[in-house]
Structure formats: structure tokens, C-alpha cells
Design a protein around this nucleic acid. Structure first.
Lengths: 239, 239
DNA sequence: TATGGATCCATA
DNA sequence: TATGGATCCATA
């Protein structure tokens, strides 16, 4: 898989020039570049999107393969350990909200956890890093970015990275997944959330396939979970 | 349907005390309170979530009915006209982004439109209002809030409202839709996006059913064939 | 083609 | 039960 570019939305406290950031970026770039299809082929070649016989729908590649290979590479090839969830304090101060029409002050209780990040680790120089591999729905990318921004602001991480498909890759994968084009109008918002003190770097890395192919012998990356993927293909083949 | 509360996350330039806000809030509160099920019953009574015979899945209410009735009520009962899309300028200034590792300055082009809001109108005193009825996936609520915040910052609207189910209502509707509980940890982030000059009010309104029922003669609100619905139907048919 | 939405899935 | 995710739908 191809690393295209890494956008640094903000960089406070010199994180960008730290050894930890350089090491982490090198590693996850490697982990990206070692995602292959077909396996061991040395490149990510995807079957191109193709209109089905019904003239309406498309055959596309599922996304689970890419995600699991990235995470596996980070652990097995790059040697990082994942630390599981970091969680935000539910007791942290809520902003002063006004109720309407009573105009009373109000603090909405925080009644939901913060979930986790796909991958959390700590660099040798002590930077806590959260990486989100984003092949969920594009709206899910908004939640991921919001979460990274809050975690950076709160100081529970110092590096936050979202990895997201290019618009071109997007079109060959499951419909409506995250992509840089649909995030581009929001970058200024996340940039404005930079922490005023302490260390914090927020980045978006854009990735793409190495090649496309129309070879009918190249299978699409499977969709859904193992059992149902086959079943779905059968259903389609029947029509 | 029951209006539970309206949280005002920020209020700049005295919008909260304007006639326009009072009129709009009264109207959309009315439009909420006139969503009935069964039709004309004067209340929103929902069939309660129920575990299916397979012991695993649940029967729940779909959400399209609620959405379409809200929008209809705003137009037909409250007499507002909808103005279609407001759109953000694609030429607006992008933040100064740094590329890594080159450390060049870069401006990611804005290559995606901003979509629209569910409902846009203007009050008699000239406030441009955007209302989002949020029964999409919870992650979609993040995009809606982000979009409202940017539109307020940019000044193309002065009032932004998200209408979202309570956690209790949430549990009886399509799995994983928007709900106040899962937004509660992010309120401080959106609050911090308040525009520094000009007028701007950002609010979240929480809604709920009036009553629940286990009466087998009360049908669930119908579900569409969106998302993974067909896939699930096939699975069910097979069992 | 583009964008917001709706629905169910996997897993801890 | 809770949370992030994956998938396909509707419509302009």
C-alpha cells in the first residue's frame, strides 16, 4: 500500500522534531507499505470497482483485510506493543451550559465512555501515541478526529494520527468510507483545537493502493465477516 | 413526542434573547410534540424493544417515520419554508498545514462540498437558522455538530440546532443512532468553537417518546432497507 | 457522481 | 450492555 502524504494540522511543544515522532511515523509508514494483496506480492493491487450486471450496483473491495493487516504489521513487523484503551476522565469539567427556556445553568453528565483508539503506544522518549485506522464510514472519521483532538487537549496523548484513504482509493472500497476529500473542509476546525500549552501533534496520513487491475482472476477483498462474505457472493452470483 | 430539554452550548451576540430564536424554538418544539404514533393518537407511543426468538437480536423501531413527520410538521403545521442548502465557500482559507517529513507548507484543497442541513430557514428578525434532525448513526451526529459549528463560525448561519434522542429513546430505535449520552463527552469541544465575534447560538435539543407499550397489536415503526438490512433479512430467512 | 442517512455487525 | 465499525440505501 502506498503512503501518499502526512498532513500535520498542529504541532505544539516541538513534537515534530522529536525522536519519538520520527520513529513512530517511520514505523506506521512501513506498516502501511507492507500491506500487500495478493499476499506476499510486494504491492497492494486491487481489483477495480466494476458495475454489476444489474447495471446499478458495484462490486467493490471490503475493508477488513486492510485494517487487520495494518494492525498486525504494527505489532509483528514493527514491534510496537498496543496498550489498549486510554480513557478520558468522566469527572472532567463540563462547560457551563445554559438550559432554554429556563436559562438555568446546567452541566450535562458525561454518561458515555470514550471508547478507545485503534492503536495506542508510547515512544522511547515518552510520547503517548494514538493511531486511528479509518476505514469506517466517513462520519466515523469525524468522531475519530474529534476524539483525537480532545485527547490531545486533555493531555492523555501527545501524538494523534488518523490514517485515511485518498479519494481515488475510496472509490474502490466499501461505499461511504472515510476519505481525505470529505474531511478537507473541516481541517481548519480541528486545527483550531490545538492545545495552548504542553505538547501535541495532530496529523492525517493519506494512503492509496499501489495498482488497480481488471483481471477477473484477482478476487475483490472480501466484504463482511468470513461466513457471510461467501454467502453474499453466492447470492450475487445467482442473480 | 416529548421535548426533554434544550442545551445552549454557546450564545454570542445576544441571540438567545432575540424574538427570532424564541419563535424558532417554539415552533420546532411544537413540531416535535406533534409527532404521534399511532397517527392522530395525540402521543408518541412506541412498541418497546423486544428480543427475538433467536435469543440474540432485537426488534426495534425504524427512524424514517419520526424524521419525515418532524420535517412535515415544520412545513405544514408551523408554516416555515425551507431554503434548501446553504453552502460554504470552497475557496475559504485553509489553515497552514505542514507536510511531514518534508516540512513544506501545504494547503489541502477543499475538494468536497459541504452538503446541506436538514432544514434551513430565516426568522423575521433575519437570523439564518439550520436545524439537524439526527437519527442517523451516532458518528453522523459528530459530522452534524462539526458542520453546524463551522457554519456558525463562518457566519452563514446564526442559529444551529441538533435534535437528538435521549438514551432511553435510543434503545428502542435502530441500533447505534445518535443519542445525547454519546455526545456528552464532546460538548466542551463544540463549546470551545464559539465564534469570537458576531452572533451565534449552538444548541442541542433532546427528545423522547411519550410512552412505551408491549401490546403486540402496536406495530413497530417500519425499518427501511438501508445499510445492512437486506443482508440481515437473508440471514433471518435462512434460519 | 456526490452526500447524508439507516441499518445491522463484531467484540469486549 | 456498550462502543467502534462495516455495509448498503435514497436521492439530487
Amino acid at each position: 500500500m502506498k503512503w501518499l502524504r502526512t498532513l500535520v494540522l498542529f504541532n505544539e511543544g516541538g513534537v515534530l522534531s522529536s525522536n519519538g515522532w520520527a520513529a513512530v511515523h517511520q514505523s506506521y509508514q512501513d506498516a502501511i507499505e507492507k500491506i500487500y494483496h495478493p499476499p506476499f506480492s510486494g504491492a497492494l493491487t486491487l481489483r477495480a470497482k466494476r458495475r454489476r450486471n444489474n447495471g446499478k450496483d458495484f462490486d467493490r473491495n471490503g475493508v477488513a483485510y486492510l485494517r487487520s493487516h495494518f494492525l498486525r504489521n504494527m505489532l509483528e513487523l514493527e514491534g510496537w506493543t498496543s496498550e489498549g484503551d486510554v480513557d478520558l476522565d468522566k469527572e472532567r469539567q463540563q462547560p457551563a451550559i445554559l438550559l432554554y427556556p429556563s436559562c438555568e445553568h446546567y452541566r450535562e453528565p458525561i454518561t458515555s465512555g470514550f471508547g478507545g483508539f485503534d492503536f495506542v503506544t508510547t515512544t522511547l522518549d515518552g510520547l503517548k501515541v494514538a493511531i486511528e485506522w479509518e476505514t469506517g464510514n466517513i462520519s466515523s472519521s469525524h468522531r475519530s478526529m474529534n476524539k483525537l483532538a480532545i485527547a490531545l487537549k486533555t493531555g492523555i496523548i501527545q501524538v494523534g494520527v488518523l490514517i485515511v484513504p485518498s479519494r481515488d482509493l475510496y472509490s474502490h472500497l466499501t461505499d461511504r468510507i472515510g476519505n481525505i476529500a470529505e474531511l478537507s473542509g473541516y481541517l481548519e476546525m480541528w486545527e483550531s483545537l490545538r492545545p495552548k500549552d504542553g505538547k501535541g501533534l495532530l496529523a492525517i496520513t493519506v494512503v492509496e493502493h499501489d495498482a488497480l487491475s481488471d483481471d477477473p482472476d484477482l478476487p475483490y477483498l472480501p466484504t463482511g465477516s468470513d461466513g457471510r462474505a461467501n454467502q453474499a457472493r453466492k447470492t450475487r452470483a445467482k442473480n
